[in-house]
Computed example of a mutant assay.
Amino acid sequence: MDTETFLRPTAVIGGSLLVTLFLGWLLDVLLRRADARHHETPLWGQLRHCRLPFQVVLCTTLLRGSYREARILPEHAFAVGRVLTLVLIASAAWLLVRIATAIVDSSYARYAAGSSNDDRVRRVRTQVTLIQRVVTAVVVVVAVAAMLLTFPQMRTVGTSMLASAGVLGIVAGIAAQSSLGNLFAGLQIAFGDTVRIGDTVVVDGEWGTVEDITLTFLVVLTWDERRITMPVSYFTGKPYENWSRGGAQMTGTVFWHLDHSAPLDLMREQFQRILKEIPEWDGRAGGLAVTDTTPHTIQVRAVVTAKDASDVWTVRCEVRERLLNWLVDHHPYALPRIATSPALPSPRPRRSGPADW
Protein backbone atom coordinates (compact mmCIF):
# COMPACT_ATOMS: atom_id res chain seq x y z
CA MET A 1 0.00 0.00 0.00
CA ASP A 2 1.60 3.31 -1.10
CA THR A 3 1.41 6.55 0.86
CA GLU A 4 -1.08 8.25 -1.48
CA THR A 5 -3.50 5.34 -1.30
CA PHE A 6 -3.57 5.70 2.49
CA LEU A 7 -3.33 9.48 2.91
CA ARG A 8 -5.93 10.53 0.33
CA PRO A 9 -8.92 8.62 1.79
CA THR A 10 -7.80 9.42 5.33
CA ALA A 11 -7.59 13.13 4.52
CA VAL A 12 -11.01 13.12 2.84
CA ILE A 13 -12.70 11.23 5.66
CA GLY A 14 -10.97 13.30 8.32
CA GLY A 15 -11.73 16.56 6.53
CA SER A 16 -15.37 15.60 6.11
CA LEU A 17 -15.64 14.80 9.82
CA LEU A 18 -13.96 18.09 10.81
CA VAL A 19 -16.21 20.13 8.50
CA THR A 20 -19.24 18.26 9.81
CA LEU A 21 -18.33 18.82 13.46
CA PHE A 22 -17.54 22.51 12.89
CA LEU A 23 -20.73 23.27 10.96
CA GLY A 24 -22.78 21.29 13.49
CA TRP A 25 -21.24 23.31 16.32
CA LEU A 26 -21.80 26.56 14.41
CA LEU A 27 -25.45 25.65 13.77
CA ASP A 28 -25.96 24.89 17.45
CA VAL A 29 -24.41 28.22 18.47
CA LEU A 30 -26.62 30.17 16.05
CA LEU A 31 -29.76 28.36 17.21
CA ARG A 32 -28.86 28.92 20.85
CA ARG A 33 -28.40 32.64 20.26
CA ALA A 34 -31.65 32.84 18.32
CA ASP A 35 -33.42 31.04 21.15
CA ALA A 36 -31.99 33.53 23.66
CA ARG A 37 -33.19 36.50 21.58
CA HIS A 38 -36.68 35.15 20.87
CA HIS A 39 -38.24 33.99 24.10
CA GLU A 40 -41.72 34.16 22.62
CA THR A 41 -41.22 31.02 20.55
CA PRO A 42 -39.51 27.73 21.48
CA LEU A 43 -38.86 26.89 17.80
CA TRP A 44 -35.14 27.69 17.86
CA GLY A 45 -34.60 25.61 20.96
CA GLN A 46 -36.53 22.72 19.42
CA LEU A 47 -34.47 22.93 16.24
CA ARG A 48 -31.32 22.24 18.26
CA HIS A 49 -32.47 18.60 18.37
CA CYS A 50 -31.79 18.51 14.61
CA ARG A 51 -28.03 18.88 15.08
CA LEU A 52 -27.17 15.18 14.96
CA PRO A 53 -29.22 14.26 11.84
CA PHE A 54 -27.93 17.44 10.17
CA GLN A 55 -24.35 16.33 10.80
CA VAL A 56 -25.04 12.85 9.47
CA VAL A 57 -26.62 14.28 6.30
CA LEU A 58 -23.72 16.71 5.80
CA CYS A 59 -20.99 14.14 6.36
CA THR A 60 -22.67 11.56 4.14
CA THR A 61 -23.16 14.14 1.39
CA LEU A 62 -19.49 15.14 1.48
CA LEU A 63 -18.35 11.52 1.36
CA ARG A 64 -20.89 10.63 -1.34
CA GLY A 65 -19.54 13.34 -3.59
CA SER A 66 -15.85 12.57 -3.09
CA TYR A 67 -15.46 8.88 -2.37
CA ARG A 68 -14.43 8.02 -5.95
CA GLU A 69 -11.79 10.76 -6.21
CA ALA A 70 -10.57 9.91 -2.72
CA ARG A 71 -10.33 6.25 -3.74
CA ILE A 72 -12.05 4.98 -0.59
CA LEU A 73 -12.03 1.19 -0.97
CA PRO A 74 -11.65 1.43 -4.78
CA GLU A 75 -12.15 -2.31 -5.24
CA HIS A 76 -15.60 -1.93 -3.60
CA ALA A 77 -16.52 1.47 -5.02
CA PHE A 78 -20.01 0.38 -6.08
CA ALA A 79 -20.87 -1.01 -2.63
CA VAL A 80 -19.49 2.09 -0.92
CA GLY A 81 -21.60 4.35 -3.12
CA ARG A 82 -24.71 2.23 -2.48
CA VAL A 83 -24.20 2.30 1.30
CA LEU A 84 -23.60 6.07 1.32
CA THR A 85 -26.74 6.60 -0.75
CA LEU A 86 -28.85 4.54 1.62
CA VAL A 87 -27.42 6.33 4.66
CA LEU A 88 -28.05 9.70 2.98
CA ILE A 89 -31.71 8.88 2.29
CA ALA A 90 -32.27 7.57 5.82
CA SER A 91 -30.54 10.53 7.49
CA ALA A 92 -32.42 13.01 5.30
CA ALA A 93 -35.70 11.42 6.37
CA TRP A 94 -34.53 11.58 9.99
CA LEU A 95 -33.73 15.28 9.59
CA LEU A 96 -37.12 16.04 8.00
CA VAL A 97 -38.93 14.26 10.83
CA ARG A 98 -36.95 16.22 13.44
CA ILE A 99 -37.67 19.53 11.69
CA ALA A 100 -41.39 18.73 11.40
CA THR A 101 -41.50 17.68 15.05
CA ALA A 102 -39.79 20.90 16.13
CA ILE A 103 -42.21 23.06 14.14
CA VAL A 104 -45.27 21.20 15.40
CA ASP A 105 -44.16 21.14 19.04
CA SER A 106 -43.22 24.82 19.07
CA SER A 107 -46.52 25.80 17.46
CA TYR A 108 -48.45 23.82 20.05
CA ALA A 109 -46.38 25.26 22.92
CA ARG A 110 -47.06 28.83 21.77
CA TYR A 111 -50.77 28.13 21.40
CA ALA A 112 -51.01 26.43 24.81
CA ALA A 113 -49.16 29.29 26.50
CA GLY A 114 -51.45 31.92 25.00
CA SER A 115 -54.78 30.14 25.45
CA SER A 116 -56.81 29.92 28.65
CA ASN A 117 -59.37 27.48 27.22
CA ASP A 118 -58.33 24.02 28.38
CA ASP A 119 -60.76 22.29 25.99
CA ARG A 120 -59.25 23.99 22.95
CA VAL A 121 -55.71 23.27 24.14
CA ARG A 122 -56.47 19.55 24.47
CA ARG A 123 -58.19 19.56 21.09
CA VAL A 124 -55.17 21.17 19.40
CA ARG A 125 -52.85 18.78 21.22
CA THR A 126 -54.75 15.78 19.87
CA GLN A 127 -54.75 17.14 16.32
CA VAL A 128 -51.08 18.12 16.45
CA THR A 129 -50.07 14.69 17.75
CA LEU A 130 -51.89 12.86 14.99
CA ILE A 131 -50.65 15.24 12.28
CA GLN A 132 -47.11 14.74 13.49
CA ARG A 133 -47.48 10.96 13.30
CA VAL A 134 -49.02 11.14 9.83
CA VAL A 135 -46.11 13.27 8.60
CA THR A 136 -43.62 10.85 10.19
CA ALA A 137 -45.33 7.86 8.58
CA VAL A 138 -45.35 9.52 5.15
CA VAL A 139 -41.67 10.48 5.37
CA VAL A 140 -40.69 6.97 6.48
CA VAL A 141 -42.68 5.33 3.68
CA VAL A 142 -41.20 7.64 1.04
CA ALA A 143 -37.69 7.09 2.41
CA VAL A 144 -38.06 3.31 2.40
CA ALA A 145 -39.45 3.42 -1.14
CA ALA A 146 -36.56 5.62 -2.30
CA MET A 147 -34.05 3.24 -0.69
CA LEU A 148 -35.61 0.24 -2.41
CA LEU A 149 -35.63 1.97 -5.78
CA THR A 150 -31.85 2.37 -5.62
CA PHE A 151 -31.61 -1.37 -6.32
CA PRO A 152 -32.03 -2.17 -10.05
CA GLN A 153 -33.68 -5.47 -9.19
CA MET A 154 -36.45 -3.65 -7.33
CA ARG A 155 -37.09 -1.42 -10.35
CA THR A 156 -37.56 -4.46 -12.56
CA VAL A 157 -39.84 -6.12 -10.07
CA GLY A 158 -41.80 -2.91 -9.66
CA THR A 159 -42.35 -2.60 -13.41
CA SER A 160 -43.60 -6.16 -13.67
CA MET A 161 -45.94 -5.67 -10.73
CA LEU A 162 -47.70 -2.66 -12.21
CA ALA A 163 -49.87 -4.93 -14.37
CA SER A 164 -51.28 -6.67 -11.30
CA ALA A 165 -51.47 -3.56 -9.13
CA GLY A 166 -55.27 -3.42 -9.34
CA VAL A 167 -55.76 -6.96 -8.12
CA LEU A 168 -53.15 -6.54 -5.41
CA GLY A 169 -54.81 -3.32 -4.29
CA ILE A 170 -58.16 -5.06 -3.92
CA VAL A 171 -56.61 -7.93 -1.98
CA ALA A 172 -54.62 -5.57 0.23
CA GLY A 173 -57.71 -3.46 0.87
CA ILE A 174 -59.69 -6.49 2.00
CA ALA A 175 -56.83 -7.79 4.16
CA ALA A 176 -56.18 -4.40 5.73
CA GLN A 177 -59.81 -3.40 6.14
CA SER A 178 -59.54 -3.24 9.92
CA SER A 179 -56.27 -1.29 9.86
CA LEU A 180 -57.56 1.18 7.28
CA GLY A 181 -60.75 1.59 9.30
CA ASN A 182 -58.70 2.45 12.39
CA LEU A 183 -56.55 4.83 10.33
CA PHE A 184 -59.53 6.81 9.05
CA ALA A 185 -61.13 6.65 12.49
CA GLY A 186 -57.98 8.23 13.94
CA LEU A 187 -58.18 11.08 11.44
CA GLN A 188 -61.88 11.47 12.19
CA ILE A 189 -61.15 11.72 15.91
CA ALA A 190 -58.39 14.27 15.31
CA PHE A 191 -60.47 16.64 13.21
CA GLY A 192 -63.98 15.71 14.36
CA ASP A 193 -63.13 16.60 17.98
CA THR A 194 -65.03 13.63 19.40
CA VAL A 195 -62.38 12.67 21.96
CA ARG A 196 -59.15 14.41 22.94
CA ILE A 197 -56.02 13.68 24.92
CA GLY A 198 -56.82 14.43 28.56
CA ASP A 199 -60.56 13.75 28.30
CA THR A 200 -62.22 11.75 31.07
CA VAL A 201 -64.14 8.87 29.48
CA VAL A 202 -66.07 5.76 30.50
CA VAL A 203 -65.69 2.82 28.11
CA ASP A 204 -66.93 -0.70 28.80
CA GLY A 205 -67.64 0.29 32.39
CA GLU A 206 -64.06 1.53 32.96
CA TRP A 207 -63.46 5.13 34.04
CA GLY A 208 -60.20 6.79 33.04
CA THR A 209 -58.37 9.54 31.19
CA VAL A 210 -57.29 9.46 27.53
CA GLU A 211 -53.51 9.31 27.76
CA ASP A 212 -52.48 8.86 24.12
CA ILE A 213 -54.06 8.72 20.66
CA THR A 214 -52.33 7.23 17.65
CA LEU A 215 -53.52 6.58 14.11
CA THR A 216 -54.71 3.09 15.04
CA PHE A 217 -55.23 2.81 18.80
CA LEU A 218 -56.10 4.86 21.86
CA VAL A 219 -54.79 4.43 25.42
CA VAL A 220 -57.04 5.06 28.45
CA LEU A 221 -55.34 5.45 31.85
CA THR A 222 -57.80 4.19 34.48
CA TRP A 223 -58.14 5.59 37.99
CA ASP A 224 -56.20 2.61 39.40
CA GLU A 225 -53.30 3.24 36.97
CA ARG A 226 -54.12 0.49 34.50
CA ARG A 227 -53.82 1.24 30.81
CA ILE A 228 -56.49 0.03 28.41
CA THR A 229 -55.51 -0.02 24.74
CA MET A 230 -58.47 0.18 22.40
CA PRO A 231 -58.79 0.59 18.60
CA VAL A 232 -59.78 4.11 17.67
CA SER A 233 -62.63 2.69 15.57
CA TYR A 234 -64.36 1.87 18.88
CA PHE A 235 -64.86 5.58 19.53
CA THR A 236 -66.45 6.14 16.13
CA GLY A 237 -68.73 3.10 16.08
CA LYS A 238 -69.89 2.56 19.68
CA PRO A 239 -71.38 4.79 22.38
CA TYR A 240 -69.19 5.92 25.26
CA GLU A 241 -69.27 8.58 27.96
CA ASN A 242 -67.04 11.63 27.64
CA TRP A 243 -67.21 13.58 30.88
CA SER A 244 -65.01 16.37 29.55
CA ARG A 245 -67.34 17.47 26.77
CA GLY A 246 -68.98 20.80 27.52
CA GLY A 247 -66.69 21.44 30.48
CA ALA A 248 -65.04 19.30 33.12
CA GLN A 249 -67.50 20.17 35.92
CA MET A 250 -69.25 17.13 37.34
CA THR A 251 -72.29 16.33 39.50
CA GLY A 252 -72.22 13.24 41.68
CA THR A 253 -74.67 11.41 43.93
CA VAL A 254 -74.36 9.56 47.25
CA PHE A 255 -77.00 7.10 48.49
CA TRP A 256 -77.84 5.76 51.97
CA HIS A 257 -80.43 3.19 52.99
CA LEU A 258 -81.73 4.19 56.43
CA ASP A 259 -84.50 3.48 58.86
CA HIS A 260 -87.78 5.36 58.58
CA SER A 261 -86.97 7.15 61.85
CA ALA A 262 -83.81 8.81 60.43
CA PRO A 263 -83.53 12.52 61.46
CA LEU A 264 -83.64 14.05 57.99
CA ASP A 265 -83.52 17.71 59.05
CA LEU A 266 -80.46 17.10 61.23
CA MET A 267 -78.89 15.12 58.40
CA ARG A 268 -79.32 18.07 56.05
CA GLU A 269 -77.64 20.41 58.50
CA GLN A 270 -74.75 18.02 59.07
CA PHE A 271 -74.47 17.44 55.32
CA GLN A 272 -74.00 21.15 54.68
CA ARG A 273 -71.36 21.40 57.42
CA ILE A 274 -69.48 18.45 55.92
CA LEU A 275 -69.52 19.99 52.43
CA LYS A 276 -68.00 23.23 53.68
CA GLU A 277 -65.10 21.27 55.18
CA ILE A 278 -64.26 19.48 51.90
CA PRO A 279 -61.92 21.61 49.73
CA GLU A 280 -62.78 19.68 46.53
CA TRP A 281 -66.45 20.78 46.68
CA ASP A 282 -66.93 23.73 44.31
CA GLY A 283 -70.05 25.12 45.99
CA ARG A 284 -72.30 24.94 42.93
CA ALA A 285 -74.84 22.51 44.38
CA GLY A 286 -75.38 20.37 47.45
CA GLY A 287 -78.73 18.91 48.51
CA LEU A 288 -80.17 15.94 50.37
CA ALA A 289 -83.59 14.35 49.80
CA VAL A 290 -85.51 11.09 50.21
CA THR A 291 -85.78 9.50 46.77
CA ASP A 292 -87.40 6.14 47.56
CA THR A 293 -88.95 4.08 50.33
CA THR A 294 -89.45 0.37 51.00
CA PRO A 295 -91.32 -1.48 53.78
CA HIS A 296 -88.08 -1.57 55.81
CA THR A 297 -85.92 1.41 54.74
CA ILE A 298 -85.85 4.76 53.01
CA GLN A 299 -83.36 5.78 50.31
CA VAL A 300 -81.64 9.11 50.96
CA ARG A 301 -79.74 10.76 48.12
CA ALA A 302 -77.18 13.56 48.34
CA VAL A 303 -76.15 15.62 45.29
CA VAL A 304 -72.64 17.13 45.22
CA THR A 305 -70.59 18.98 42.60
CA ALA A 306 -66.91 19.49 41.83
CA LYS A 307 -64.67 20.92 39.13
CA ASP A 308 -63.82 17.56 37.52
CA ALA A 309 -64.40 13.83 37.74
CA SER A 310 -61.52 13.18 40.13
CA ASP A 311 -62.69 15.78 42.63
CA VAL A 312 -66.33 14.71 42.49
CA TRP A 313 -65.25 11.16 43.34
CA THR A 314 -63.35 12.50 46.37
CA VAL A 315 -66.34 14.57 47.51
CA ARG A 316 -68.68 11.59 47.20
CA CYS A 317 -66.44 9.35 49.27
CA GLU A 318 -65.88 11.99 51.96
CA VAL A 319 -69.59 12.78 52.29
CA ARG A 320 -70.56 9.10 52.43
CA GLU A 321 -67.99 8.28 55.10
CA ARG A 322 -68.42 11.35 57.31
CA LEU A 323 -72.21 11.31 57.33
CA LEU A 324 -72.28 7.58 58.04
CA ASN A 325 -69.88 8.04 60.98
CA TRP A 326 -72.06 10.87 62.28
CA LEU A 327 -75.14 8.64 62.19
CA VAL A 328 -73.32 5.83 63.99
CA ASP A 329 -72.06 8.17 66.73
CA HIS A 330 -75.17 10.30 67.30
CA HIS A 331 -78.17 8.56 65.75
CA PRO A 332 -77.58 4.81 65.61
CA TYR A 333 -81.33 4.16 65.54
CA ALA A 334 -81.36 5.63 62.00
CA LEU A 335 -79.39 2.72 60.59
CA PRO A 336 -81.32 -0.05 58.83
CA ARG A 337 -82.79 -2.72 61.11
CA ILE A 338 -84.45 -6.07 60.53
CA ALA A 339 -87.73 -6.55 62.40
CA THR A 340 -87.79 -9.86 64.29
CA SER A 341 -90.97 -9.38 66.44
CA PRO A 342 -93.92 -11.74 65.76
CA ALA A 343 -96.67 -10.52 63.49
CA LEU A 344 -99.77 -9.13 65.23
CA PRO A 345 -103.09 -10.95 64.64
CA SER A 346 -105.65 -9.34 62.39
CA PRO A 347 -108.29 -7.33 64.40
CA ARG A 348 -111.11 -8.38 62.02
CA PRO A 349 -113.31 -11.39 63.07
CA ARG A 350 -112.49 -14.60 61.30
CA ARG A 351 -115.17 -15.87 58.90
CA SER A 352 -116.42 -19.42 59.35
CA GLY A 353 -115.90 -21.72 56.43
CA PRO A 354 -116.47 -25.33 55.45
CA ALA A 355 -113.31 -26.29 57.34
CA ASP A 356 -115.00 -25.22 60.65
CA TRP A 357 -118.13 -27.23 60.05
Rank of each mutant, 00 (worst) to 15 (best):
I13E: 00
G81P: 07
L30T: 10
L180S: 04
S352E: 13
V140G: 09
L30Q: 05
V202E: 01
S310L: 08
R122S: 08
R64P: 01
V195C: 07
S346K: 12
R82D: 02
A309K: 03
Y240S: 11
A190C: 11
R337G: 04
A100N: 06
H330R: 12
G15L: 12
I13G: 05
H257V: 04
L43A: 09
W313E: 06
D329Q: 06
A92V: 08
Q55F: 02
A93H: 09
L31V: 08
T41R: 04
W223M: 01
V121N: 01
R337L: 05
W357E: 04
A172D: 06
G287S: 15
S115W: 12
S341G: 11
I13W: 13
V138S: 03
H39E: 14
S164N: 05
L266E: 09
G287L: 08
T253K: 12
A93M: 10
S91A: 15
R284G: 00
I338M: 06
L266I: 02
A309H: 01
D35S: 14
Q46E: 07
L95N: 03
H260M: 05
P345C: 13
Y67I: 14
E75S: 13
A248G: 04
D356E: 15
A36V: 04
V138W: 01
R226W: 08
S116W: 12
N325K: 14
L221G: 02
H296G: 02
L323I: 08
M1N: 05
R273V: 05
E211K: 15
P354V: 14
V315R: 02
T60G: 13
V290P: 01
L288M: 10
G65E: 05
S115I: 14
V157W: 14
T214W: 01
F54S: 07
R123G: 10
R273K: 13
W326M: 01
Q177G: 00
A176V: 01
T200L: 03
L88E: 03
Q177M: 05
Y234M: 13
F191H: 06
R227D: 03
S244N: 10
A248E: 11
L183N: 03
S160P: 00
L95W: 05
S341D: 13
L47Y: 02
A112Q: 12
P239T: 13
A185G: 00
M161E: 07
R82E: 06
T216Q: 07
T5E: 10
V157P: 00
F235N: 11
G186S: 07
A102V: 11
T229D: 07
L344G: 05
V201M: 04
A112V: 15
W223R: 07
L180N: 03
T3D: 03
